[in-house]
Design a protein around this nucleic acid. Sequence first.
DNA 1: CTCCTTTTAGTCGTATACGATTTAATTTTA
DNA 2: TAAAATTAAATCGTATACGACTAAAAGGAG
Lengths: 145, 145
Amino acid sequence: MEQYESLKLKNQLCFPIYLCSKEIIRKYTPYLNKLNLTYTQYIVMMYLWENKETNVKELGKTLLLDSNTLTPLLKKLEQKEYIKRTKSEKDERNLVIKLTKRGENLKEQALEIPKQIGKCINLEKDETIILYKTLYKILKNIEER
Amino acid sequence: MEQYESLKLKNQLCFPIYLCSKEIIRKYTPYLNKLNLTYTQYIVMMYLWENKETNVKELGKTLLLDSNTLTPLLKKLEQKEYIKRTKSEKDERNLVIKLTKRGENLKEQALEIPKQIGKCINLEKDETIILYKTLYKILKNIEER
DNA sequence: CTCCTTTTAGTCGTATACGATTTAATTTTA
DNA sequence: TAAAATTAAATCGTATACGACTAAAAGGAG
């Protein structure tokens, strides 16, 4: 066992995670282009398709992103008229983020995407479940320490 | 079963991969700061600690990055005097990338990092192995189609 | 040998990602 | 209730990440 074994790329766990993240997102790109969305914009839209209304703080807590990333991204989504950004009346520090009709309608077109990506990733059902569980375990472990 | 179930964030596989990538890299950051490296610079250094000499093409093939990302990154590593960039004499299209003594020495300090990150991720041995295999399977599947 | 193609880096524009700081609104506390 | 502390979003600077394009060098066919 060599002294620097632990520093070899093939022994890193984060490296294939980093690669998978990049490469899967690359696979999303042609489908997302059709909807005029980037991957990060897409997961914001997903959150809104589920929740209808949110704010920067809440969204950031789910996506693990901060206002420094979200503010410009949300402005872009507003430009595309997929969302509306308005100050909350109850608490003007809060920004209310809502889907527009157009943003809501996009959901229909998006339905094709998970199918296509699933085909690309092409794992067995049980592999997928284990992977999924392990990833969320890592996230839980990391946030703890 | 709801019609839009497949578009919920909790049913996405890429989403936790994307989160894990970001969050693990966030954990790396304080350790990498001590070495004055970013995560991407770190994996470039890892490649060089293993291979001593490379070029943009070869490096990009391993890290799945292109010259548009690597060129500025390598220039920064050269500024820090961790690497040297020189045109190949045999083929002037090729850029020879080599460690400096200083870059080589950094390896010693880096040894602590995998230990610390391992503690953070905190998976069982067999979980790690399965995760690792599944991730490389995804990468293989993706590059195929 | 010369033109054409291929290969390798580099450049440019856009979009995250994030640490650090700022601004404005609200809440707490003395 | 006025000052201090907290909170939410925005701003700023730096560093990827990547599609599209450019420039320069090398290789190959006629």
